[in-house]
C-alpha cells in the first residue's frame, strides 16, 4: 500500500539572499517546503489552488504562487519571501507603507500582497490607482475592502521612487 518512500534530491537555490541546500522530494509543494522544512511561514496557504495569492513569493523577480510550484522548479533560482523583503527592525518600504497606511488588518493576505507589490513597483514605479488595483487583483483580502492596500502601494511607490527590490 502507499506511503511509498518518496525519493529525495538535494535542492540548491538562493533564498532571501543566501544559498540554501535542502534534501527534499522534487515533487514537494514549494509552499510546504518553505513553511515546514525551512520554517519560513510568511507565505500562507489560503486555498492551495491559485485563487487567493496568500502564498505568493518572488522567483527570479516574478511573483508566483508557491502552492502551485514543485520543489524541483526552484533549482538554481533566486527566491524571495516576505521575510526576505524586510524585517520588523528594518522593514522594506512596501511593508512600512502597508503598516503606516492601515492596510493590515488580520494580515494573512499581507505577505502575499507585498510580494505582488514588489514585482509590480519594480516594473511600474509611478502607478495610478487603477493600475494598482489590477496589480493586486490576484490577492484576495477579506478584511480591508482594498482601499488602504491601494493607498499603501501608492505610498510605497512615492517612498521609493524608481527603486526596485
Amino acid at each position: 500500500m502507499s506511503g511509498k518512500i518518496v525519493p529525495t534530491f538535494t535542492l540548491a537555490f538562493t533564498l532571501n539572499g543566501g544559498p540554501v541546500r535542502v534534501e527534499t522530494s522534487p515533487g514537494r509543494r514549494v509552499l510546504d517546503l518553505l513553511r515546514e522544512d525551512l520554517g519560513l511561514t510568511a507565505a500562507k496557504e489560503g486555498c492551495g489552488s491559485g485563487e487567493c495569492g496568500a502564498c505568493a513569493i518572488l522567483v527570479d523577480g516574478a511573483a508566483k504562487l508557491s502552492c502551485l510550484m514543485l520543489a524541483v522548479q526552484l533549482e538554481g533560482r533566486e527566491v524571495v519571501t516576505a521575510e526576505g523583503l524586510g524585517t520588523a527592525e528594518n522593514p522594506h518600504p512596501i511593508q512600512a507603507a502597508f503598516v503606516e497606511n492601515g492596510a493590515v488588518q488580520c494580515g494573512y493576505c499581507t505577505p502575499g500582497m507585498t510580494i505582488a507589490t514588489a514585482e509590480f513597483l519594480a516594473h511600474t514605479p509611478d502607478p495610478d490607482r487603477g493600475q494598482v488595483r489590477e496589480a493586486i487583483s490576484g490577492n484576495l483580502c477579506r478584511c480591508t475592502g482594498y482601499v488602504k492596500i491601494v493607498d499603501a502601494v501608492l505610498a510605497a511607490a512615492k517612498a521609493a521612487p524608481g527603486e526596485s527590490s
Binding site: L40, K44, E83, F98, V104, C106
Partner: peptide
C-alpha cells in the same frame, strides 16, 4: 501590523 507585514507574526497555522 508590523510583525504581520514582515511575515514574522505566527498565526495558529
Amino acid at each position: 501590523t508590523l510583525s504581520k507585514a514582515v511575515g514574522a507574526e505566527r498565526y495558529s497555522t
